[in-house]
Design a protein around this nucleic acid. Structure first.
Lengths: 228, 228
DNA sequence: ACCTGAACACCGTTCAAGT
DNA sequence: ACCTGAACACCGTTCAAGT
């Protein structure tokens, strides 16, 4: 933090830093992790590869900044909303996180390839801790419950983004579910009878309905006093 | 499937295939994803880089085979155990999966970088579907519930393995928790008051106790008839 | 028929040499 | 003081040339 304080809503110190992150995100969206090389990012902004190292120490730092940018979008998409119950706001954050990350599936592997420690990540964690408290779960249970919610969100999005195609934007949800249904239809029912019987539901595992279904059960398990 | 049928308990057709996977897993353990290059794998078995392509079409196929090998260890570590309730066996599988994956943290990113579709993965899914059924949750709820369990396991392990150091074996759990406690102690309490207040619990998020705590709540939410 | 080893088109990162 | 562009040490993958 040697530069001047950040001003207004622009989160990056220099135009070039923002240009690099714009280019990195666009390349991640278009070509996945492999497409977002330092050399291609540099080429996209018309600079030699080495120029990137004026602003970021290494590739990992660029990745971390891209994650931070996307988490910032989630932060801004879910205003504090102090008037609704904590549980509803937790669900709103979970929905916004999935929505933003599925919109940028190339970013998802970055969540898992290294620690997520930026200010926006810390802010989301802080908010979740408060919301669990608002929902009636305080102290150690609140802190443990917040992590279960994080695990559910990250795990869901990671498995969803790991589906083919690994590059380019994800097709619409119905299309991906239809593709899974086709794949599942080829599974031998004699070897995997339960899978075959449940194929139509398994096809929808990566969809919004399953996400909300699971989120509600997870929150039930966390927030119901009878189950503590 | 053009080769001869697989014989006995050896899951790989040729010694060289097994050699490649041994070398890949050892390199993943030692140096993470970046350390397990095709060229290094080939060097480890004393072959030119191109030799790997006699057995695997590309790097992704090697990665998928390594994942399959680790999932096979889980399969063998959790015999069917038809005499205990479904819930207990689900917990046993969840424990075994985490144990095997944390032992090979370099394998974890592979779970998320592409689809996991091998026979051992399908077998684990099949077993989970049956166990949810045994635990009293059938039909659509059983199929949805199985995925929530998978999401919880994969999400937990992914976040745990994403902690530094990204290469080499993970230090003992207590050591990693102590490291997290030190990091968390540096977080400004005025900006993140709830994080600071809960720091000692947050430090343990990556530990066995949190994993079991969350697993039980998740299963409570899934298996309790009153919450369906 | 099979495998090798060289080659191709890339990487991330560094750093002397220029301005 | 800053940036460039070339260089270094790597990649994954292909394939002609050998045996």
């Amino acid at each position: 933090m040697t530069g001047p304080a950040r001003r207004g809503s622009r989160p990056w110190r220099t135009p070039t830093e923002a240009q690099i992150l714009d280019a990195a995100l666009a390349l991640l969206d278009a070509g996945g992790l492999a497409g977002a090389s330092i050399r291609r990012i540099a080429a996209a902004i018309g600079a030699p590869p080495g120029a990137v190292y004026t602003y970021f120490p290494d590739r990992e730092a660029v990745a971390a900044a891209v994650v931070e940018r996307v988490l910032g979008e989630v932060e801004r998409a879910t205003p504090s909303a102090r008037d609704q119950p904590g549980r509803d706001t937790i669900e709103a954050i979970a929905v916004a996180l999935r929505e933003r990350l599925v919109a940028h599936p190339g970013v998802v592997p970055l969540l898992v390839n290294g620690p997520v420690n930026g200010p926006n990540a810390l802010l989301l964690r802080e908010r979740l801790l408060g919301l669990l408290n608002d929902a009636g779960v305080a102290g150690e249970s609140g802190a443990r419950g917040a992590y279960v919610v994080i695990v559910y969100i990250v795990g869901s999005v990671a498995l969803e983004a790991a589906e083919p195609p690994p590059v380019g934007p994800l097709p619409p949800e119905e299309e991906r579910i239809a593709g899974r249904r086709d794949t599942l239809a080829a599974i031998p029912a004699d070897t995997y009878p339960r899978t075959a019987a449940a194929a139509d539901v398994i096809a929808t595992w990566i969809g919004t309905e399953q996400y909300m279904w699971g989120l509600r059960r997870v929150l039930n398990g966390l927030l119901n006093p009878a189950l503590q």
